[in-house]
Each structure stands twice: as structure tokens, then as C-alpha cells.
């Protein structure tokens, strides 16, 4: 079927099976490789993107449901070449190790901060439920608090 959406500010029209997970449309059709395949069952969050500003696990999101929506991936998170506050905080705290899960965490965090600009530790525990096998959670928590500060400064 024909599906059209905007991704990172650019309109796209795709012709493919509507039940294809959005993840594969993003990775293999649109060649945006920052969104990762981790589990295929929405269990790890490596494929987290934004659909109309909300965090979505794209491996379990049929592409037909994205029709007419606005999608943002890690490649489109920062505007005007600057790093997004979440990316900046991640950089300042030197969070990544292997790095594979990090785009998913960054996207999940950016979506959370839109809803909860000043998250408590408990907010973070409840909302950031992606999996990182290298165990970078300790630095991520610090980076999330820092990102909130950076983002509030920008406002």
C-alpha cells in the first residue's frame, strides 16, 4: 500500500506492505541506520523514535499506522546542526560504551522531557525502561538530569 509521512521534516511516500514494522522502513527503505534493531518485540527500546512527538518502539509499529504522521529519528533530533540538549548531556557525561542502545535511550529521554521537564529519579525509573547491556544507567541518570537543565535554559 501507499504510505506517506514526514520524517525528520522531509515528506516521504512509500509503497510497501502496511504491516511491515516501521523500523524496517526507516532502516532499510529510507536508509536511516541510527534506529536500531534489538528485539523485534518492543521489549528493549533500541528502536525508539518519535511519532507526533511521542516515543514509539518502531519494531512493533506497523508502517501503515505512521500514515500522515510526523516522525523523528535520532538523525533528525538536533536542529540546525547543534546537538539536542539530551545529546549534549550525553556527550558531557561520556555516557556511551558500545553505543548500540544509545539512540533509543536518547529518543526516549527527549520524549520524556517534553512531558516532564524536571524529572525526579522516580520519574526516570518509571519512564526510561530501555535496556543497556553495557550498564551505562548510572551515567545516563546523570545525563538525564543534566539534559533537563540544559533544555530549561534554552526555553
Amino acid at each position: 500500500m501507499k504510505i506517506s509521512f514526514s520524517i525528520n521534516g522531509k515528506s516521504q511516500v512509500l509503497e510497501l506492505d502496511g504491516n511491515t514494522p516501521l523500523l524496517w522502513a526507516i532502516r532499510d527503505v529510507l536508509d536511516l541506520k541510527g534506529t536500531k534493531f534489538g528485539c523485534g518485540k518492543a521489549a528493549c527500546g533500541a528502536c525508539t523514535i518519535h511519532v507526533d512527538g511521542k516515543a514509539v518502539r518502531s519494531c512493533s509499529f506497523p508502517v501503515k499506522m505512521a500514515d500522515g504522521k510526523e516522525i523523528t529519528t535520532i538523525e533528525g533530533l538536533s536542529k540546525d546542526g547543534d546537538l539536542h540538549p539530551v545529546q549534549q548531556a550525553w556527550k558531557d557525561e561520556i555516557v556511551p560504551q558500545c553505543g548500540y542502545c544509545q539512540p533509543g535511550f536518547i529518543m526516549a529521554t527527549a520524549a520524556m522531557l517534553n512531558e516532564i521537564p524536571n524529572p525526579t529519579d522516580e520519574d526516570i525509573d518509571q519512564n526510561i525502561i530501555n535496556i543497556c547491556r553495557c550498564g551505562t544507567y548510572y551515567r545516563m541518570r546523570k545525563a538525564i538530569h543534566k539534559a533537563a537543565k540544559l533544555q530549561n535554559l534554552q526555553k
Binding site: G34, L83, Q87
Partner: peptide
Amino acid sequence: RIDLHDKIVGAPIF
């Protein structure tokens, strides 16, 4: 880390 930037912008390195 020298791979820091690649890993926070989602560069296709894997």
C-alpha cells in the same frame, strides 16, 4: 572517547 559523537548521533558504525 573518540567514538562519542558517532554514538550519540546514531552514525552507521555497527
